[in-house]
């Protein structure tokens, strides 16, 4: 079963310098009960993709072809009212900054009651549900926490409360956009483990966005690698990390200092810049920076299957048996 299915999604932004083609032919699935990670450098379209899914594209943005299928709806065709009914109860989100999700002048308990406003439960039942999930995210003394305000909690606790609130209505899909970037290593690891545990408890799927390759490797079942608004590679985490098929994915993995077991003073980088998306090259988007460039790269690239469930958008990628 697939919870979220994106097919050939294209997103454009109109800018002074002409139309900017922010996402081109993006396709991937989020299967039931799986955690799918999206990696890519800033500007690769990760945030545009989330906004497109949530129906929150900026005023100058529009979907120009393709579909986003979720629970029998094509989200690109839903009106603002219908989208609003889905956001929260069915598709929940957690962002990098927990204070963006918490109201500083309303107690945590009241905020969590508000989230359950359509549940039909009594006040005490709502509070009991809030306490249960706060205990699950390991907030000490969860009962008393309901009366406290967001500023009374530490950064790591605030993020855990934000996660608890997102999962309170047991959504089918959780979108987590860099939820651990602002945390330190020890808290980051604790938060990932917690997220995994809750995901299994609730049985939801997670779309996890991060540029931290270590976190992706640890948490995600599947990975989607994006570059300049295109999906260049996707597969299971093991397939992509152990055997990357696209040169960009391979270079990105090499660049992580964590992959260098020997101490090196000069860290690897990918020379060149992301192309101007107002003038997208017709051929392979990564060709100008690729050290394996060949004549075949001049043509538009399609996704080549490498193995079951493992795809790369590169003419030079070879199928593996």
């Amino acid at each position: 079963m697939t919870v979220l299915s994106i097919t050939d999604l294209n997103v454009f932004f109109s800018t002074e310098g002409g139309d900017l083609h922010a996402l081109r032919d993006v396709s991937f699935d989020v299967p039931e009960r799986r955690i799918v990670g999206i990696v890519g450098e800033s500007g690769c379209g990760k945030s545009t993709l989330i906004n497109a899914i949530l129906g929150l594209l900026a005023d100058n943005g529009r979907v120009g072809g393709g579909g986003i299928h979720f629970e029998g709806h094509d989200l690109t065709r839903l009106g603002p009212k219908e989208m609003q009914a889905l956001r929260g109860p069915r598709i929940a989100t957690v962002f990098q900054d927990p204070m963006g999700a918490l109201n500083p002048v309303v107690s945590v308990g009241a905020q969590m009651r508000n989230i359950q406003y359509r549940s039909g439960l009594s006040r005490s039942e709502k509070d009991a549900k809030s306490v249960a999930i706060l205990q699950k995210v390991r907030i000490p003394d969860a009962g008393a926490a309901l009366a406290r305000y967001p500023h009374e909690f530490s950064g790591g606790m605030k993020q855990r409360i934000a996660i608890a609130m997102a999962l309170l209505m047991e959504p089918a899909l959780l979108i987590a956009d860099e939820p651990t970037t602002a945390l330190d290593a020890t808290l980051e690891v604790a938060t990932i483990e917690l997220l995994k545990e809750l995901q299994q408890d609730i049985g939801c799927s997670v779309l996890f966005i991060s540029h931290h390759l270590g976190v992706i490797a640890e948490l995600c079942d599947d990975v989607v690698v994006m570059y300049a608004g295109e999906v260049v590679e996707r597969g299971t985490t093991r397939q992509v990390f152990n055997n990357p098929g696209h040169p960009y994915a391979a270079r990105l993995l090499e660049c992580d200092p964590a992959r260098q077991s020997e101490r090196v003073r000069l860290l690897p980088t990918i020379p060149g810049e992301i192309p101007d998306l107002r003038h997208r090259p017709e051929g392979c988007i990564f060709a100008p920076r690729c050290d394996r460039r060949a004549p075949a790269c001049e043509a538009r690239q399609s996704e080549l299957p490498l193995q079951t469930g493992h795809m790369a958008r590169c003419a030079l990628a070879e199928a593996r048996s």
Binding site: T186, G214, N242
Partner: peptide
Amino acid sequence: AALLSANPEPDPDKARNRISLPAEV
């Protein structure tokens, strides 16, 4: 030791011998 062991590494097959700490500082 706990800090070093908490360092997420980009290798899905790596065995993680993590020293977990109570989160509250």
